[in-house]
């Protein structure tokens, strides 16, 4: 009995670690979504496409301009974020007065167009992108498993970015303006704050977070046009479970669901793609506002 328990533990411990790595991506992506929804009330369905663009821009920077991974980590979110500014100014900002559904449909359409353009140009099977030299080499031997250095870096980086974003929104003056503008935009504007510009930059920041996740993902997954759509549905489930627009909720839920999914891959792998949605259904029935959302 004890032996069996130990065996189970030995089998599951590595999955918990891997779950954390996947959770890091879920957290980072749902963080961007939560920022955009919380501040703009836009359900950004183009998030997956922007994640994919982040990875592709990293590839282009490396292959066309010779800029390595570390440079791409900074430049790619800025470039894709600038693209976000254009989208927000020319299209999305026109829909703020309408129902959420219009924003959702617009961004969904944009996602399909962007993915289609990349597929036509680069094909579907993807492009190679090697991890940086300093993070390659022999995986770390944790005793119960081998963990590639690059994955450790992903968890650390994602965690740091999540904390930083949360601090900016909850603890700084800028964050206070933002939260106030969501509550009552005309009043904040009356105090001399340029609300439309702030909203545009918030959207750009959310998009930048997606692109950052894309750069982090590029060395692990094949850089291909469909990489975002595989993630985005799960990430939406994460946001719904965490509570739409709740920053802390999406981060905790992201890591938590990564763990649950990891364990499912050992116990019943066939269900690993569905387990998150089962949890989503249960949470919606019990707490419609999500685990951390305010009704």
């Amino acid at each position: 009995m004890l032996e069996e328990l130990l065996f189970q533990l030995e089998m599951s411990a590595p999955q918990v670690v891997l779950g954390l790595v996947n959770g890091a991506f879920y957290a980072l992506l749902s963080l961007g979504l939560a920022v955009i929804f919380g501040m703009l009330n836009v359900i950004n369905f183009a998030h997956g496409a922007q994640f994919m663009m982040g990875a592709f821009v990293a590839w282009m920077l490396l292959n066309w301009a010779g800029i390595p991974y570390w440079g791409a980590l900074i430049l790619s979110p800025i470039i894709v974020g600038a693209f976000g500014v254009i989208l927000e100014r020319t299209m999305i900002s026109r829909l703020y007065k309408l129902d959420h559904l219009y924003g959702l449909l617009l961004t969904f359409g944009l996602a399909l167009i962007i993915e289609g353009l990349f597929r036509n140009q680069f094909g579907s099977s993807g492009l190679p992108y090697a991890p940086p030299e300093s993070l390659t080499g022999a995986p770390l031997d944790l005793g119960f498993m081998m963990l590639p250095k690059y994955r450790v870096w992903v968890v650390v980086a994602a965690f740091a970015v999540c904390i930083a974003t949360w601090l900016i929104i909850e603890k700084t003056r800028l964050g206070a303006y933002l939260r106030a503008a969501t509550e009552n935009a005309p009043l904040v504007q009356a105090f001399g704050v340029n609300v439309p510009r702030m909203v545009t930059l918030t959207y750009a920041a959310g998009v930048g977070l997606a692109a950052l996740a894309g750069v982090l993902a590029a060395p692990i997954y094949s850089v291909n046009p469909g990489m975002g759509s595989n993630f985005i549905i799960v990430v939406f489930a994460v946001v719904v479970i965490g509570g739409m627009g709740s920053i802390l909720g999406s981060v905790i839920t992201g890591f938590g669901l990564g763990l649950v999914e990891g364990l499912t891959k050992v116990i019943y792998p066939e269900a690993s793609a569905t387990v998150i949605f089962v949890i989503m259904a249960i949470v919606l029935l019990a707490r419609p506002a999500g685990l951390f959302g305010r009704a």
């Binding site: 891997l18 790595v21 996947n22 692990i220 595989n230 993630f231 891959k265 050992v266 792998p269 690993s272």
Partner: peptide, 8 residues
Amino acid sequence: GTTDFSSF
């Protein structure tokens, strides 16, 4: 829809 194969 599977992108991460590390568990497997």
